[in-house]
Design a protein around this nucleic acid. Structure first.
Length: 772
DNA sequence: TGATTGTTTGCTCCA
DNA sequence: CAAACAATCA
């Protein structure tokens, strides 16, 4: 086996180099994953490095799993690859803290290895509670979200609450310091770590526990870090702490794809790598194997407008390709219809291809989903409301957390009256007060209140019932497997009963979600997981982990598209204030990051790239749409690489689709659609005809010259050349009509001929016949 | 208490 | 537009 074969010269050098620190500047589509996997395989096979001595860090769990599989595919089963560590930074840190974190208690009083992980919702609840305790509400203080962002920022810059207090210039900042202090105190009392802590405390543990540090440094002969441009301060320190002995760090990244500075990522980590490791070797991968020349040149021209970069020139041996398409639609709805249309054309021509629709904000997905539903086109939405963020899922998980860790106050307060059991505001206030006065966590405060018997009888009975419930479940949890515990929680708490009794429209969907969680628990139990593992998994899954490789159409944010590739990509909402986002207009650094994000999005495309924007867009679903300007990024792409697919000046006819939109929304919420589906093109025609709109919506978004169709539905005219029917062409053979403009013999038809692509045809001139 | 209704406010991006 | 909050009534 030779893992250097089939690589280009710089790739080969990157795989083979073993002379110390190595920085691989890997442009988009330059075979980065291939290099990393081959490098691991080469180290194991040619250099006899034991798999247990290699640690590779990636950005998502899915990427980690794929990388492991590819290495296994290269090496087969003759090596102990299960000892190879491939994971995300966060997973790595959680495992470190759970296994070897005991001594962190010396730095963080009350810490135990069975700590809880708080996600953003939990953090927000904590900020809220802390603010309220200090008598600060959102209006006189600042929005809780903003406060949380500033606390997180302080933490990541290693500023303690007193530091923040000292640096405070105004009342707001000093108030923030006290909220921060209270927030940290509550975290410790609950033995909880937030996402920042997972990394920060792993760093502190390694700094503090010399034996542990030494053990890891002896073990790790090679450390590989993917997406290095998006590492933050803590991740950088982890890298340094873990590579002290062997110094074999291989960092792979691309400064043009740094898009997570708002999460603390420091682009200087990659820009300064050579300063950090003076003996570092630098290898550039500049040959792109993914995209056509037009796509690559467009993206390259765009990102060339940035100043903060090392600068590189990607090239490809592929020539030309389709020009980058562009469409300016009238409004977001027309934009969505154009996108749906584009997707149909792509998939008619190449049914096996996959298409991604990328947008800047999750809120943009809704209208695109509606358009795709109208076309009966199945799609997968990545991100937005994830499964594990849903209230009912978080409720059940909160029960599990409390069973494992009674001191977890945020989750305890979440479930104490969910479902309602007579413990209202006043009862909870009493518990809060008792906890604060006696320095107890909330669970112990409950026990104390029950002992003292000073509660009103009704509250006392309710609270007693809650205690019995939790203690009973805790006994179940001690002996039963995971899925049985989940089942017990759902039933004994009355959660399922409450949902069944609920008459609101989404109660059914929530029931299904709860059932689904039960299934997930069964799967996890089958893998041998207990409650703690299940909870960690739930806390650490990422949106990108859910991507289905089989899905033909994927909708996601540009951020989520990082590391992926698709034959065809549509980037939408390219308007000033949306992409680039309004919050980035002020600062040059932020604007450059927006541009990098757009660059990332564009370079996902292999063969076809289409960019769209809307002339008018409404915000907050308000009555009036606001005019918007095309994104500056569009003007930064040279015209020679592009073609205009459509431009719209006039408003389209109004269609009342409220009823269907409701169904679609419900479907979107559940991510599945159980109502009537419009799967065939025939049905689409009926669907629109019934509403008085022609099926031939201007795919190009061209201005409508005919008067708008009447509101009252005309009887459906069955022309022999209707959309969806099969036709026979003298030269191209059999095809399917995708679109029809006009009536009868004069109709202008767009027909998809397998092997020949889409053709625009006038029936009577082309000698078109109906097939069959 | 808790369910129902009314009102307000916010939409980055994510592990 | 829709979640989250406040206010009101049963």
């Amino acid at each position: 086996m030779d893992f250097l074969e089939g690589l280009n010269p710089p790739q080969r050098e990157a795989v083979a180099y073993t002379g110390g620190p190595l920085l691989i500047l890997a442009g988009a589509g330059s075979g980065k994953t291939r290099v990393i996997t081959h490098r691991i395989a080469h180290l194991v096979h040619a250099h006899r490095v034991p798999p247990s001595a290699i640690v590779a860090v990636t950005f998502t769990n899915k990427a980690a799993q794929e990388m492991r599989e590819r290495v296994e595919g290269l090496l087969g089963h003759s090596y102990a690859l299960s000892e190879l560590v491939v994971s995300t930074f966060h997973s790595f840190c959680v495992r470190l803290l759970r296994r070897d974190g005991t001594r962190l208690a010396e730095l963080r009083p009350g810490f135990t290895r069975s700590f809880t992980i708080y996600d953003e919702d939990d953090q927000l609840a904590l900020v809220k509670a802390a603010s309220r305790q200090l008598g600060l509400d959102e209006k006189q203080f600042m929005p809780y979200r903003a406060a949380l962002a500033r606390i997180s920022h302080a933490k990541n810059h290693k500023l303690s609450p007193p530091d923040v207090y000292k640096a405070a210039k105004d009342l707001k900042a000093s108030r923030l310091a006290s909220v921060y202090e209270e927030y940290e105190g509550r975290l410790r009392q609950a033995n909880a770590l937030d996402f920042d802590d997972l990394l920060l405390e792993a760093v502190r543990l390694l700094q503090h526990d010399e034996d542990l540090r030494r053990a890891w440094n002896q073990r790790i002969a090679h450390l590989l870090i993917d997406e290095y441009q998006d590492t933050n301060r803590s991740q950088y320190e982890l890298m340094r702490l873990l590579s002290q002995v062997h110094q074999n760090v291989c960092a792979v990244g691309d400064e043009d794809q740094s898009i997570y500075s708002w999460r603390g990522a420091d682009i200087n980590n990659i820009l300064d790598f050579e300063a950090d490791y003076p003996n570092a070797r630098l290898i550039r991968l500049e040959q792109n194997y993914r995209s056509t020349q037009n796509i690559l040149a467009s993206a390259g021209a765009l990102v060339a407008h940035n100043r903060e970069r090392k600068g590189k020139l990607l090239w490809t041996s592929a020539q030309g390709g389709a020009p980058v398409g562009f469409c300016e639609a009238y409004d977001a709805e027309q934009e969505a219809l154009f996108i749906a249309d584009t997707i149909e054309s792509v998939l008619f021509g190449n049914p096996g291809d996959r298409v991604a629709v990328l947008y800047r904000t999750n809120a943009q997905s809704r209208q695109i989903e509606e358009a795709l539903r109208r076309y009966g086109r199945k799609y997968q939405v990545i991100g937005g409301f994830s499964f594990y963020q849903r209230a009912e899922i978080k409720d059940i998980l909160a029960y599990l957390r409390v069973l494992v860790a009674p001191q977890d106050s945020v989750n305890l307060l979440r479930i104490i009256n969910t479902p309602a059991r007579g413990l209202g505001k006043s009862a909870i206030e009493q518990i809060e007060r008792c906890a604060r006065e006696h320095g107890l966590n909330h669970w112990n405060a409950i026990l104390r209140l029950l002992d003292e018997k000073q509660l009103p009888t009704r509250a006392a009975a309710a609270l007693e019932g809650f205690r019995t419930l939790i203690e009973g479940l805790r006994e179940t949890a001690a002996v039963e497997p995971l899925h049985e515990v989940v089942r017990a929680v759902i039933e004994q708490t009355g959660y399922l009963k409450t949902l069944e009794a609920d008459q609101t429209p989404d109660a059914e969907a929530r029931q299904e979600n709860v059932t689904e969680l039960g299934n997930a628990a069964s799967d996890a139990a089958a893998r041998g997981e207990g409650i703690p593992e299940f909870l960690d998994h739930a806390a650490l899954v990422s949106e990108a982990d859910a991507i289905d490789d089989q899905a033909r159409v994927c909708l996601m944010t540009a951020h989520n598209a990082k590391g992926l590739e698709f034959p065809a990509v549509v980037i939408c909402g390219l308007e000033e204030g949306l992409f680039p986002h309004s919050r980035s207009l002020e600062s040059r650094a932020a604007m450059e990051e927006e541009r990098r994000l757009c660059y990332v999005a564009m370079t996902r495309a292999q063969k076809r790239l289409v960019l769209t924007c809307a002339r008018y867009r409404r915000r907050y679903g308000g009555e009036h749409a606001q005019a918007s300007q095309p994104s500056r990024f569009l003007s930064e792409i040279p015209l020679e690489f592009t073609e205009v697919l459509g431009r719209v000046a006039a408003p389209p006819p109004q269609v009342d689709l409220a009823g269907d939109q409701f169904l679609v929304r419900q479907a979107a919420r559940k991510n599945l659609y159980t109502g009537k589906t419009y799967n065939s093109l025939e049905n689409i025609a009926e669907f629109f005809a019934a509403r008085g709109v022609a099926t031939n919506l201007p795919a190009t978004g061209a201005p409508r010259t005919q008067p708008p169709p009447p509101r009252v539905a005309p009887s459906v005219r069955r022309s022999k050349f209707s959309v969806g029917s099969s036709v026979e062409h003298p030269r191209y053979g059999n095809g399917t009509i995708v679109r029809r403009e006009g009536e009868g013999e004069d109709a202008k038809l767009t027909v998809s001929f397998p092997g020949h692509g889409l053709k625009k045809i006038i029936a009577k001139y082309a000698g078109l016949k109906t097939a069959e």
